[in-house]
Design a protein around this nucleic acid. Structure first.
Length: 455
RNA sequence: GUGGGUAUAGCUCAGUUGGUUAGAGCGCCGGGUUGUGGUCUCGGAGGUCGCCGGUUCAACUCCGGUUAUUCACCCCA
């Protein structure tokens, strides 16, 4: 009886080829982060549930992977509580820890815990796995990488501009041309909400208008009416959502519209100075329908979507938060950060066939193993190759155990460019038979020639 | 949480209106080639058709349930 091997849903293996490709993306992102002066940070996969819960909204809390306590944890649960079947009340007895849901909240925890050692503004990057217990689908996994960069302790909009430069640099190096960087500012959204008299329904408003490009204006209107906004507010909102123009035109339009909202004016000012740093380019859009769900954003919001692929989801997301560390007892620390979605970038590069020229960095040479004499003889030569930094291997079993035909097949499957065949003739003459696996040609060479040839 | 698809050999999948011995390609093992891979050729192993139940003389096939997985919605990287 054997168990059928299978993966848990929403997870993937990464074989040697996939690993190398993913590492290539990671290295590109990491180099860009370091070029801009970000410092690395690694935090545990496991965090206390008290650190994680309440930071991502109710939906987010539902999606946290929780870790069962050890021991007979049910002993402490009273019969009444068990009988109530109320998960929320029972949860603290059965779980106190969970897997991190993103890298931003652990970062906030770290900053607060280490504030005495950190010089602000603190720029850190973090490339690690995160876990979410949601239903998997295309481009969406339960275990995936985030590549985060955040600057905390500075409210300058120059930071936003730097992050956007990093995004541009990374996609340029990965040769992904079709991207669109969408920018907006939560303060502008809040201004709109105030202006149309829906300031109390801000969250509902953002969730609904975030769907605009997916479901269209009519359905957004329906949804908002359903969520308790009045007809008048929705009609006014329509004029905002249907406006079309260049960045300067949009900002002018907003300036004329948001005359009564202090926060709205602030948002417009922020966007103006950000665009003065960035300049207008095709790939950067001011999109007042961009809202983003994560509740901790308070200023600039950033999202990057790929163009010309099946992938519809965003590949970067981020924004400014004024009070991320407040819940951990360190208020008024403004920060801005964003994240690359490694797994989705990988999927896109696969779809666009951008992985052609990546070197698998494999061994150059395999020594065929005839018998113990041959093994001893070639093992010394193998050592010399490795001293020179030449990647080479010897087949671990002799031909009386694994036939030469099979050793050759192994060399072929593993794509060794060369094999060396060393029988008694070769050992007597001191010349090795070097076979080129691509051409099939075979010649006799000395050890010195071999070193030169592969070096 | 809601809705759809899929489940047959190690892998990717065929399988006719229900019918007698369930197939292919790839992979694996062996031979042609006792010191030569990739190509070619011959042969071989490998399947309680996801699981439980029902209909039927007869079920891989139809029906119900269940589990897993996948896609879409919600939400999100």
């Amino acid at each position: 009886m054997s168990i059928k091997p299978s993966l848990s849903k929403g997870t993937r293996d990464f074989g040697p080829e996939q690993f190398v490709r993913r590492q290539y993306i990671i290295d590109t992102i990491k180099n860009a982060f370091e070029l801009f002066g970000f410092q690395p940070l690694e935090t545990p996969a496991i965090e206390k549930l008290s650190t994680l819960t309440g930071k991502y909204g109710d939906e987010g809390d539902q999606l946290l992977f929780k870790i069962l306590r050890s021991g007979d944890y049910l002993k402490k649960v009273s019969d009444e509580l068990l009988a109530s079947r109320d998960v929320k009340s029972i949860l603290p007895f059965i779980s106190e820890r969970g897997l991190r849901y993103d890298l931003t909240v652990p970062f906030a925890r770290y900053v607060v815990m280490n504030q005495d050692k950190i010089s602000f503004p603190f720029k850190r990057y973090q490339i690690q796995t995160v876990w979410r217990a949601d239903r998997p689908q295309k481009g969406r996994y339960q275990e995936f990488y985030q590549c985060d960069a955040d600057i905390i302790g500075s409210d300058s909009l120059l930071n936003e501009a730097e992050l956007i430069q990093i995004i541009q640099k990374v996609y340029r190096e990965l040769k992904i041309d079709g991207i669109e960087i969408k920018l907006n500012n939560r303060k502008i959204l809040q201004g709109i909400a105030e202006e149309i008299g829906a300031g109390d329904n801000f969250t509902e408003l953002t969730i609904a208008i975030d769907k605009l490009d997916k479901i269209g204006i009519d359905k957004v209107v329906d949804e908002l009416l359903g969520r308790g906004l009045d007809q008048n507010s929705v009609d006014q909102l329509k004029t905002f959502l249907t406006f079309n123009g260049s960045i300067t035109e949009t900002l002018e339009f907003l300036e004329n519209k948001l005359v009564n909202s202090e926060i709205g004016k602030k948002g417009i000012e922020e966007m103006k100075s950000l665009f003065s740093y960035l300049g207008e380019t095709e790939k950067i859009k001011l999109d007042i329908t961009l809202a983003r769900g994560l509740s901790y954003y308070t200023g600039t919001i950033i999202e990057v979507v790929p163009l010309g692929t099946d992938m519809k989801s965003s590949i970067n997301g981020g924004g400014r938060y004024d009070d991320l560390t407040g819940v951990f007892g360190m208020p008024n620390l403004s920060g801005v950060g964003f994240s690359f979605g490694l797994d989705r970038i990988y999927d896109i590069m696969l779809e666009l066939d951008l992985f052609n020229d990546i070197d698998l960095n494999q061994s150059k040479l395999l020594f065929i193993n005839f018998d113990e004499n041959c093994q001893n003889y070639t093992y010394k030569i193998l050592g010399k190759l490795r001293e020179k930094g030449i990647k080479a291997e010897i087949y671990p079993s002799p031909t009386n155990k694994v036939k030469m035909k099979k050793q050759m097949k192994y060399a072929n499957d593993r794509k060794f460019p060369f094999v060396v065949i060393t029988g008694s003739d070769e050992m007597d003459s001191g010349l090795l038979s070097l076979k080129n696996m691509a051409t099939g040609e075979q010649e006799k060479v000395t050890v010195e020639e071999l070193l030169l040839r592969l070096g």
